[in-house]
Design a binder for these strands. Structure first.
Lengths: 319, 319
DNA sequence: ATTTTCGATAACATAAAGGTTATGAGATGA
DNA sequence: TCATCTCATAACCTTTATGTTATCGAAAAT
């Protein structure tokens, strides 16, 4: 069951014809015949039904096809990873970060990654949840960090839960979502830009480069940061929400002063506690490059730190 | 980069010594030396630092170790799957189902699987969320269906989100959770058995064998069903909750009559909408046997059906 | 019936994989 | 300095993998 044989096997499936498959592989027909026979005898099953007008795959063949393709991809990926690493190229890493809280730990992790592995070039793209999923699906990025409901019914994705944040949404007093009678649904809130509140950023400010905004593209190698929504973090968020239809995410305590001053108001929600569960998402079929795995380790570490700090803050809050 | 060579490579790592590793593999030392050299030249990197007192792995070696182990496991799994299938054994399937709503689609899927593939032997174990995770982690089951927050911080798990249900918890009037001043936390509710309400079961009753309870072990091959909590589904749930500390999961409309009669009451919760996101969980490192993949397809199909029916019910309800 | 098409088989060639024993070369400690 | 330990190298052997060309036999089509 060598890679070579598996490739011959897959070629035969494609052409459904020994002669033509052999030709496409650049070998003679008897060579391919024997090769497939050896594969069959090794596994102890018949892989093809030989018909007079060609061959068709058996159930065993179908199983082998699906699995062997993955196996070959995994092997190629491994080869590629080692070759790149050997060339001194530890790898570029593209990640798509969803809104809060994904972006919070996502950015903090980039800063840590850059500190420890400056040779890894990171491109982070901040986007909406749906866009993150789309970018992962099209392989535009290696990895996404997004709210996991993004994944519903998408069997091509794998996810790893990172954390859970509970927060509320806040808006300006005259916001369109306040005009309607019913409490806004989650789907409706997604129609407006969300901005991360001070709380989640405060949790990681000791890790964040001061220049980092909450939305945009950051390359730690060059230091370039191109904000998608230009907000000075953390103080300008309230001003931004006050003067636009953007929604701020945070806790009641986060905006205690602003609420009593009436500058921003909490959004009524029939689901008042906004539980956000977010995690890594990536394609099931691909094996992740080493740079991505290193980055994931950093994210996990940051996440653990955030969890601990939140627990401390919660304890302080309840006293 | 044949399996054989990779195994030699792993053996050398283990012994950190050419002579001893060669002995453990049953070959001579020069044979192993040459084999490793070939592997190194094939990949174009040095895998071991040769020291006078043995060998130590380089960074490349470490990368290859991690990846090649997975590759070998995948290959072995494939071989095992085909061998089993060749022996007419399409495979036994062990699944752990968490409480509602996991168990709902889990059971319905078993019924469908049994109808289409009667030769697949299924063992379903219904358990609490934590136990599902534990059983998956220890490979006691191939697959789990559970609430995904089970996965937080567990990087050994892969998950695939299946669906999201919103419900509330109900209890008897004198329940301990009502005695405390604060609203019960999610963690506290987990201290009591949960039982599935009529709503989620009603959604799939056309798929369920009439005998199925909501908790227990069911083998569709023999038809044996051993309930863990004996409840006649669906009518006895209210009686059970009324006379125990069990919690029932459902919507307000589910228990409309009982609430007005005062027999059961909704549990106050600072997080009144109980959003349950559940999905498949399995070990990252393992490749799933074919029987499990077939089952997963059935679950996905049932899940899609449930989603559609819920949407219809919701629309009917809002009119 | 005859021809064509397709895969299997036979006979043979060659390169590569994998192994052996004997020996070499460098570091280390008695 | 010498014995000893490490892994590398050399020379050689055997088996297996992979290929070739020529031919065969069965089914389908003309």
């Amino acid at each position: 069951m060598t890679p070579r044989r598996l490739r011959q096997f897959l070629a035969l499936i494609e052409h459904a014809h020994f002669g033509r498959a052999a030709k496409s592989l650049g070998v003679s027909q008897p060579a391919l015949s024997k090769s497939i026979q050896l594969l069959e005898s090794e596994l102890g099953v018949t892989l093809f039904d030989r018909r007079t007008d060609g061959v068709v795959l058996t159930a065993f063949g179908q199983l082998l096809r699906d699995k062997s393709q993955r196996l070959l991809v995994a092997e190629e990926d491994l080869r590629r990873d080692i070759t790149l690493l050997a060339g001194g190229d530890i790898g570029a890493l593209k990640v798509a970060l969803g809104p809060y809280p994904s972006v919070t730990s996502g950015y903090a992790s980039i800063a840590r990654l850059h500190a420890r592995h400056p040779q890894i070039k990171v491109t982070a793209h901040v986007a909406g949840w749906r866009e993150v999923a789309q970018q992962v699906a099209t392989s535009a990025v290696d990895l996404g960090i997004a709210e996991i409901s993004t994944l519903q019914g998408r069997e091509e994705f794998t996810c790893e839960l990172l954390g859970e944040h509970v927060g509320r949404l806040f808006c300006r007093p005259g916001h369109p979502l306040l005009a309607q009678k019913r409490s806004p649904t989650m789907a409706q809130t997604l129609d407006y830009p969300w901005v991360a509140s001070r709380i989640p950023l405060r949790l990681v400010t000791h890790l964040l480069p001061a220049t980092l905004g909450c939305a945009g593209t950051y390359d730690p190698l060059t230091g370039d940061f191109v904000p998608a929504i230009e907000i000075d973090v953390p103080m300008q968020i309230v001003k931004f929400v006050e003067n636009s239809n953007a929604l701020a995410l945070g806790n009641l305590s986060t905006f205690e002063q602003e609420i009593s001053a009436g500058t921003i108001v909490p959004l009524p929600a029939h689901d008042p506690a906004l539980r956000t569960r977010y995690g890594f998402i990536y394609l099931k079929e691909r094996s992740l490059p080493p740079a991505v795995e290193i980055y994931m380790q950093e994210v996990r570490a940051v996440e653990a730190e955030i969890c601990q700090r939140e627990r401390i803050l919660a304890r302080m809050g309840s006293k």
